[in-house]
Nucleic acid binder design. Structure first.
Lengths: 238, 238
DNA sequence: GTTGCAAAAAATATCGATAAAAATTACTTC
DNA sequence: GAAGTAATTTTTATCGATATTTTTTGCAAC
């Protein structure tokens, strides 16, 4: 899983910095600056930025360089709607195809996620680990959907969604609910109840979104992470 | 619509060559060779290849260079299934949102498509034009689905599907049926009958697929376009 | 005849520098 | 004083060349 090429490394590092908000939405990405930051040449850096552009985390305007993809309330709603569509379908297929090993992997991922949640509630762990395990749990469920393209698109949209989630650190007031939602999904999946599982998944996404929307509506903007220079885009006007 | 940068140009040219089959599936893409072919430097070329990789038209293996994405019967089925999912949802939303100008644009695109079909049946035009207008017709329908992400993903999958279609030039034996199918979609859309339109769209895709599957099953492989060097991947074993 | 290793060849990935374009600044003119 | 224009500066996009890595070729040993 270790990056084999310089471009891979830059891609991973930039992706993490964007998802975490260290590179704030709308921020200008100056090549020279990033070169120093990542200690890398111009060619692999541009290659990494190109990939991120295809993934929708970076935008490239004509001959005016790269910048971090802006965020907006509209896009959050859009991303969520599409994520429901893809995740729902993935769950549907996965339940039809999954075997016992698949069930076991889900249970295992759920266990690790719960642990992380507990640890976080006690202030022992950070969000990064929770995000990682949350992704692993959801990945485990849809892993049985033997549809490479669905996986691929779902992963793309999941990244977008994760970004919005991570941009608001205060999300975790609702931790208890999230835990319950995850259990609902788990139960429905293990019971092989397709419709219940799809519904629970969509509800899970909806809840996250309404939480975020409320949060954003309250403060009319996002706190930019550790963005050094470059303007920070407001969520509502972006 | 004219490419502003060298990387853009290379991206467009390569994309067209891959979709048309001039660069055959599985074929090795030697940088030096492409440099001469497109008269371009290494950096923008790699940038273009990176984008195509993100779009799934090119694959990049570790440190062993690029090659044209292989094709397979399984992937054709996968792409079609996902395309039905996305196209169906897009039609659903578009019908809800579309206004009169939208309807007019669809009728116009349909008219041009029919013209092209007639002209092609008389041997006056080539597939390239038909493909273009076919895409424009389907684009016109979903253009009212104000969901950037759905549009984006749909476009990605459409490209994949188009590639499989164009790799088999003999597809057009079923031209009459295709024409009728397009009319069915048109009628259902204009009548604002969501379910009928979605069903017609999915049936349309299904028909294309079964046609292609039959074709591929018959000859157990694909005729590679004008692929110069590099091995051609067989469809079934790839 | 095949297997293993070493050297050569080829191709990829990367760097440093240059050319082209956009943004900024300063200046002139009304 | 504002607006338009020309020159400067900054930044991007591109090129040519180099260093790694992979693949091929050749040779020797079993």
């Amino acid at each position: 899983m270790t990056p084999k090429t310089q471009a891979d490394r830059a891609h991973l590092q930039l992706r993490e910095k964007i998802l975490s908000g260290e590179l704030a939405p709308g921020m200008k990405l100056r090549v020279e600056h990033l070169r120093d930051m990542l200690e890398i040449g111009a060619s692999p850096l541009r290659e990494a930025l190109s990939r991120l552009t295809s993934e929708g985390l970076v935008v490239l305007e004509g001959q005016r360089g790269f910048r971090v993809a802006p965020i907006s309330l509209d896009e959050l709603k859009d991303v969520s709607r599409i994520r429901k569509l893809l995740e729902g379908e993935a769950v549907r297929i996965a339940i039809q195809n999954g075997d016992e090993a698949w069930e076991a992997a889900i249970v295992s991922a759920f266990y690790r996620l719960e642990k992380a949640e507990t640890r976080m509630a006690e202030g022992e762990a950070d969000f990064t680990e929770w995000e990682k395990r949350n992704r692993e749990f959801h990945d485990a469920i849809v892993s049985a959907a033997n549809s490479p393209w669905l996986q691929r698109l779902r992963s793309l949209v999941y990244d977008q969604h994760e970004r919005y989630r991570r941009l608001s650190k205060r999300q975790m007031g609702r931790l208890r609910d999230v835990q319950r939602e995850h259990r609902e999904i788990l139960d429905a999946v293990l019971a092989r109840d397709v419709e219940a599982a799809v519904e629970a998944s969509c509800r899970h996404i909806d809840n996250t979104v309404t939480g975020l929307v409320k949060l954003y509506a309250d403060r009319e903007g996002v706190d930019s992470g550790a963005g050094a220079d470059g303007e920070t885009a407001s969520l509502v006007k972006a």
